[in-house]
Amino acid sequence: MPAEHHGSVSAEPVISARNLDLTFQTNDGPIHALKGVSLDIGKGDFVSFIGPSGCGKTTFLRCMADLEQPTGGTVTVNGMTPEEARKSRAYGYVFQAAGLYPWRTIGGNIRLPLEIMGISKAEQDARVARVLELVELSGFEKKFPWQLSGGMQQRASIARALGFDADILLMDEPFGALDEIVRDHLNEQLLKLWDRTGKTIAFVTHSIPEAVYLSTRIVVMSPRPGRITDVIDSPLPRERPLDIRETPEFLEVAHRVREGLRAGHGDV
């Protein structure tokens, strides 16, 4: 069992999981969604989670976000419990579906968490304008979600998570439903944003190239029970043009990830 923890060497951990267990009790018996998961995510890390369906990636992210209660072990976020972190609005969470409210404009959707947090009207306006620019949706503030393409909606939902300026971003397959071209574009933008803001990002994906392109570290997981089988530190530089994906270093990392995934499958 990989109960030893995969530590980060450089910075103090922003998110730290120790021996995390989560067992769902279902009618068909218990499901071990997570077992003995330990991981440190350092400040400014971009960590991707990759693994076959049902290996507990979403569950792990939800534990960090206090949307799921672990049945064993601990998670801390910014040194707090996930509940305290959630209540101090330490993270932004981007769900797989954009989940914009149809009755609110794009601006209104981004404003929603800001209203909930009691941020002043003037400040709201400033932030909406800023994050819309960040995701290249300036000029769409007054549009309704149904007037936007799926990719634009997903960008709007990222803008919404960015709006309240948390240092941590938890993203669960945010680009899963998009076509390759749009996805490339959003990957590039996300990377720029990460580079500019120094946020800590935990990112779930099914795509090996996406994981390798974006991450400073790639966490490979495997199902039944859900666990971490490999953690790969990326040797790629922070500055990453899209064509870095053709370089030998990139392919080398991708190869290692693929090997890790295959090994995870092997011992099931």
Binding site: D66, L67, R86, Y91, F95, P113, I116, M117, F164
Partner: peptide, 9 residues
């Protein structure tokens, strides 16, 4: 869940 992550009342 979204509302929960924003700590909405």
């Amino acid at each position: 869940d979204q509302m929960r992550t924003w700590h909405a009342s």
